[in-house]
Design a protein around this nucleic acid. Structure first.
Length: 107
DNA sequence: ATTCTGACGTGGG
DNA sequence: CCCCACGCCAGAA
C-alpha cells in the first residue's frame, strides 16, 4: 500500500528513543527502499502536523538539521534536540555517531 | 499529460 | 577534499 509507507515511517520515527536521532536513509533502508530516502523526508512533511512524530530526531546522513526550516521556527528543531541532551552546533549534530539510532540495529 | 522541485544518498571527477 | 550529476518517488504548477 502506498499510504503504508508513510505510516511505516511514522511508526519508526515514533520509536526513536529520547536523546537519539536517525537519518532518512536509515529509515528508508529499514523499509526496504534505501534509494527512496527522499520519500522519507516527504513523509515527514505530512507528519509535521502530527505531534506523535518527533521529526526533529530525523536528520540527513551527515547529522545536519536539513529540515529545521520546516518547523514552526527554524530554531525549534535545535532547541528540541538540545533539550534531549543532543548537542547541535551550526545545524550540525555533535557526536552524531554516538546519538545515532539505527532502526535495523534496534529492531 | 509534462516538467520541476525536493526534510536524501551515492558515486564520479 | 570539494563540486557536480544521477537515481527515486510523489506532489504541485
Amino acid at each position: 500500500m502506498d499510504t503504508n509507507f508513510f505510516t511505516n515511517v511514522y511508526e519508526v520515527v515514533k520509536l526513536i528513543p529520547k536523546g537519539k536521532v536517525t537519518s532518512y536513509g536509515a529509515i528508508a533502508n529499514y523499509l526496504g527502499a534505501k534509494k527512496s530516502a527522499r520519500m522519507v523526508g516527504w513523509a515527514m512533511n505530512s507528519s509535521h502536523t502530527l505531534e506523535d512524530v518527533p521529526a526533529h530526531r530525523v536528520v540527513n546522513r551527515v547529522g545536519l538539521l536539513s529540515g529545521k526550516h520546516f518547523f514552526e521556527t527554524p530554531t525549534k528543531m535545535q532547541e528540541l534536540l538540545e533539550s534531549e541532551g543532543i548537542i547541535v552546533i551550526d545545524n550540525q549534530i555533535q557526536d552524531f555517531e554516538k546519538v545515532f539510532w539505527n532502526p535495523e540495529n534496534e529492531l
